[in-house]
Design a protein around this nucleic acid. Sequence first.
DNA 1: TTAAAATACGACTTTTTAGGTCTTATTTTG
DNA 2: CAAAATAAGACCTAAAAAGTCGTATTTTAA
Lengths: 133, 133
Amino acid sequence: MVRLTKKIEYALMALKYISDECDKIVTAKQISENLNIPNQLLAKILQKLKKEKILESVQGIKGGYKLGKKLNEISLSFLIETIEGDMGIVDCLKTDRQGECCQTDSCNIKDPINQVQTEIYKVLKNKMVSDFV
Amino acid sequence: MVRLTKKIEYALMALKYISDECDKIVTAKQISENLNIPNQLLAKILQKLKKEKILESVQGIKGGYKLGKKLNEISLSFLIETIEGDMGIVDCLKTDRQGECCQTDSCNIKDPINQVQTEIYKVLKNKMVSDFV
DNA sequence: TTAAAATACGACTTTTTAGGTCTTATTTTG
DNA sequence: CAAAATAAGACCTAAAAAGTCGTATTTTAA
């Protein structure tokens, strides 16, 4: 299965929402209510985006989030890695799982799978979040 | 997450194995033992491939499988659809799930997601199983 | 004609991942 | 200091992937 998770969808929706608000600071609550996204889940996604400087945050009662990068500087691949971590299309190509595969010896398709991964990755790398606006 | 399932991996491995045996008939057991794939699971994958004429089968004690199509006629996208069914990268783009999404009204990213899907699909459609040999 | 070995098929169980919640801290403003 | 926001981690639940079990059917050959 080739799919984007809800978290990625929510991140894209939120980024678009924040972008539409220009330089105003918006709260997680505001976003989740407007876009119909579970509040706490969104909060954690936004925190991950903040860690990678995709968003900037302000704490406290007047706090919230605003963009930390321009949308055309954020690739879909970077967004996915920020939220989901290392993105191998199969386990044995994930950097943190290498050597775990019990098929290593009998596997006859590793190189070509790698090629597919490279090509999909290229698509995701060339797709910018700004394309979603 | 963008990933291929084990089933797809197993299918690719099996197809390569069968292809390497030229026109000899090979049994599921033989494949699973040589490639270290759970027997029953492989058996069901092979049956799906058979239903789409990717493989031909012979029943009975001298039975087994052989190729029903040339590997360069089988695209990765067709293989995925054969094994996993309809492949939308997000639920709302799956043909059997349209209208189920509770975000329909607030969703602000449907069209661009559709574009990403189209591009990934293109990669998978242009990648033939023969590229895996 | 029956035993063995293969495919065929559906129900079931287990494991893993995704999705979502709860709780508690910390920060900031009025 | 109360209120409302971010911050963070543990936890729970639901869904999907991965794998198993049981049984029927087909075919060959002794």
